[in-house]
């Protein structure tokens, strides 16, 4: 209960300050709508099903893009971590791509993939790939040599050592990579939808701006933040189930 109060104290304060600013009429209502107006806009959007439609479209894009990024980054990160040859082979290309923000490539991506779903998927994959790839790579390469030596002493083959020591040891780092990657997917998607889309939350915000509906813009912003937080929380819960030993370590003050 105390933890919950701690978590919501600052949002509640922001809400109060927002309400006072509106009451004092410091800004025009075209710039900053009242909290109640925003809430009403939220209810309207829910009742009409518009919000649900846009959220569903955005979520589907995120999961598709994130899924693709996982399929690419996870095996590539593992292979680069295990094989020096393979790492040298593709490292410079990946380093180059890593330094290009996906948003900078948007004009080219739209030119090549059009303004339909494919371009959004490419943007998400580009944004989500590196956090997962780099975390997987680092998890595999930083495996404790002393643990690997235990495998050698027990006559495990190279593949057995990878499977039973290196990959489980890398799992916590891989999970952090997945979590970061999912967050990046969500943020990149909204960026992509703000630039070229005919549906999705990003589009809803842009459309509301053109129609001078700052209340709808605010609803969009809140929904983005809340969904992002919920996805992250679900992820943390799943991670705890996947890594029971880490939970026990935290409880023991390790």
């Amino acid at each position: 209960m105390k933890k919950l109060a701690q978590r919501f104290l600052i949002p509640a304060l922001i809400l109060v300050v927002w309400w006072i600013i509106v009451k004092l009429q410091i800004f025009s209502s075209y710039l900053l709508p009242a909290p109640l107006t925003t809430w009403q806009a939220f209810l309207e959007l829910c009742a009409s099903g518009i919000l649900f439609k846009h959220v569903t479209v955005s979520l589907l894009r995120v999961f598709a893009g994130f899924g693709l990024a996982v399929l690419l980054a996870l095996p590539l990160g593992i292979i680069c971590g295990l094989s020096r040859f393979f790492k040298e082979f593709c490292w410079s290309t990946l380093e180059f791509l890593r330094h290009v923000p996906p948003l900078a490539a948007i004009p080219l991506i739209i030119l090549w993939f059009g303004i339909e779903e494919a371009s959004k998927l490419v943007i998400i994959v580009l944004a989500a790939f590196f956090p997962l790839f780099l975390n997987t790579y680092s998890g595999v390469t930083t495996c404790d040599k002393k643990l690997l030596e235990v495998g050698t002493a027990l006559h495990l083959t190279t593949w057995e050592k990878v499977r039973h020591i290196q990959l489980p040891a890398a799992l916590p780092t891989i999970i952090i990579g997945l979590q970061l990657s999912l967050g990046y997917s969500w943020r990149a998607l909204i960026g992509a939808e703000l630039i070229a889309a005919s549906s999705g939350i990003g589009y809803m915000i842009l459309d509301a701006e053109e129609l001078s509906r700052p209340d709808v813009v605010l609803v969009g912003v809140f929904v983005i933040g809340i969904i992002g937080t919920v996805i992250d929380e679900i992820f943390i819960m799943l991670a705890k189930r996947l890594l029971p030993w880490q939970r026990k370590a935290e409880n023991n003050g390790y």
């Binding site: 002393k146 643990l147 030596e149 235990v150 027990l154 006559h155 495990l156 083959t157 057995e160 039973h164 020591i165 489980p168 040891a169 799992l171 890594l243 030993w245 370590a249």
Partner: peptide, 24 residues
């Protein structure tokens, strides 16, 4: 070894049975 070098993701029983993972 000087340090236990146990696999942190395995339980005590699984750690003891670690050598079993080598199929041969």
């Amino acid at each position: 070894f000087q340090e236990p070098r146990l696999m942190p993701w395995l339980t005590v029983q699984q750690n003891i049975e670690f050598a079993k993972l080598h199929k041969e």
